[in-house]
Design a protein around this nucleic acid. Structure first.
Lengths: 76, 76
DNA sequence: ATTGCATATCGATTATTCTCGATATATAAT
DNA sequence: ATTATATATCGAGAATAATCGATATGCAAT
């Protein structure tokens, strides 16, 4: 999530739709299947959103949902 | 944590040092040992603080530490 | 000293999460 | 049609968390 705040600083190729799974995988150093699963969990939770483009899937932050959980945390 | 924000609203007896374990246990409906463990974990994390008084242990929120994790979450 | 409560710790079981390799699916290029 | 690449899904094992009952400890009252 932190990397995706300023993706240009952390990934070689950044598109408007986000960053592709394999770039994330290289950086996070977990298996491809694990990364894919984590991304899908984050997406299910609404924290990131995906765009399929050809054989690639790009992920980027969903600031709206992130803002919501921040507000929720403020109530702690 | 939420209950302890306004303990008078949720517990029968509230002291300046906080709320005793057994009152929390009644409310949370978990076994005594589980509640005691959870409280000690929260304390180790710094989110609550305990005061032993005779045979009772009172717990209350540690707003300082709570504020810190809130700030941390703001960086999400 | 003994008993009775409040809380803490121990040991064990079950449930959940983490993580992987293997396989499947979708798309792109030959 | 075949092959190559990117991603997703499946099935399984290991690691961690949740939870309990039993027991221990500390303190208070007899």
């Amino acid at each position: 999530m932190q990397w995706l705040k300023e993706p240009e600083k952390h990934f070689p190729d950044v598109y408007p739709e986000g960053v592709c799974v394999s770039d994330i995988q290289k950086k996070v150093e977990l298996s491809q299947s694990t990364v894919s699963l984590y991304l899908s969990i984050l997406q299910d939770a609404g924290f990131i959103q995906s765009t399929r483009q050809g054989q690639w899937t790009y992920y980027k932050r969903n600031e709206k949902q992130i803002e919501e959980i921040k507000q929720y945390m403020m109530d702690l």
